[in-house]
């Protein structure tokens, strides 16, 4: 297992390098001078000149890449063209906020998805299942920003249950404050993904309930509860893990719309303002982070999968 993880981490290197080339080249794809793009439209000539020196823009292009990479490896991704703040510093303040929102959302998503998914798998023709299907369709179809606005109007403005602007309050510092500030955006995202995950749970549980080993378990006299929890669910979890992992990955990249609606200071809102203000260094940093986060989540999913499925050998 340990050696598997190390080998996988080594496999990440070429992927990340490739991504880094793309991120670096982004600046050259921007019309105009790369230095102008990096320091922003309102920069002084001195700042532009400094950037040129720092990035070796007078050197050959390949060398420029390695200079940039060298900086990046030292976690120096330049400065925001707008605020002048170092990009890594900016991201370091946003990443925990995004992780916290992702975790809250996933908890809500799973808490909603599993009972619903299980119920509709077990009673495919019941009224409850019809209601669940409707819920899933609505959860998927209704845009999160609209749910977000409704939540703000309902729970923040009408009754003052939650703040209408969600700040980042670290969970370990103030659990209640963290809950108050994160609940509404997390509910938005959580209900949205609960529709997707519930569908997966239903499909894979139904699939495993029709397998031979379920009949064996029943023939052994295992009560229905045990048949489902010990035999069917464990098998049904396998495909679900993958989809949950993918969702977590996409959350870590920031959830732009939700964060903007709730003014939540996560990566998503950072990306949003960076894009609208053409803050290229920040965009570069965010893209790099998203790539790394996805790779890491994938690794976690694979390890988890191997843990859940003894047939999978981590080699």
């Amino acid at each position: 297992m340990g050696s598997y993880v190390i080998r996988r981490l080594l496999q990440f290197v070429p992927v990340i390098l490739l991504a880094s080339v793309a991120v670096w080249a982004l600046i050259y794809a921007v019309p105009g001078n790369p230095a102008d793009a990096l320091v922003g439209p309102d920069a002084t000539p001195q700042a532009v000149a400094a950037a040129k020196v720092r990035l070796g823009l007078d050197r050959p292009v390949v060398e420029q890449y390695f200079i940039w990479l060298g900086h990046a490896l030292h976690l120096d991704l330049g400065h925001s063209a707008i605020s002048g703040q170092p990009v890594t510093e900016l991201m370091a303040s946003r990443i925990p906020a995004s992780i916290q929102l992702a975790v809250f959302s996933m908890v809500i998503g799973l808490v909603l998805a599993f009972p619903l998914g299980i119920a509709s798998a077990l009673k495919p023709r019941s009224v409850l299942t019809k209601a669940i299907n409707l819920y899933q369709a609505v959860a998927l179809a209704v845009p999160t920003f609209w749910v977000g606005i409704l939540l703000i109007i309902g729970l923040a403005i009408r009754v003052h249950l939650f703040p209408s602007i969600s700040n980042y309050v670290p969970f370990w510092a103030d659990p209640v404050g963290a809950f108050k500030n994160t609940f509404m955006p997390a509910l938005c995202l959580g209900t949205f993904i609960s529709g997707i995950i519930a569908r997966f749970v239903t499909a894979s549980l139904r699939q495993s309930m029709s397998q031979d080993y379920i009949r064996t378990a029943r023939a052994k006299g295992v009560p229905e509860y045990g048949v489902i929890s010990r035999h069917a669910l464990r098998n049904a979890l396998l495909p679900t893990v993958t989809i949950v992992g993918l969702q977590v990955g996409s959350f870590l990249g920031g959830t732009v719309v939700t964060e903007v609606v709730f003014s939540y200071p996560g990566l998503g809102r950072m990306i949003y303002s960076a894009v609208t203000s053409r803050d290229y260094p920040v965009i570069q940093g965010a893209v790099l982070f998203i790539v790394v986060a996805f790779l890491a989540i994938n690794l976690v999913v694979d390890v988890l999968y191997a843990y859940l499925d003894p047939r999978v050998q981590l080699r």
Binding site: T216, R230, N235
Partner: peptide
Amino acid sequence: LTMVFQNPMTALNPVM
């Protein structure tokens, strides 16, 4: 009252 099934490879739970 017990049963032995036709296909032993699928009669057992793969993850237990």
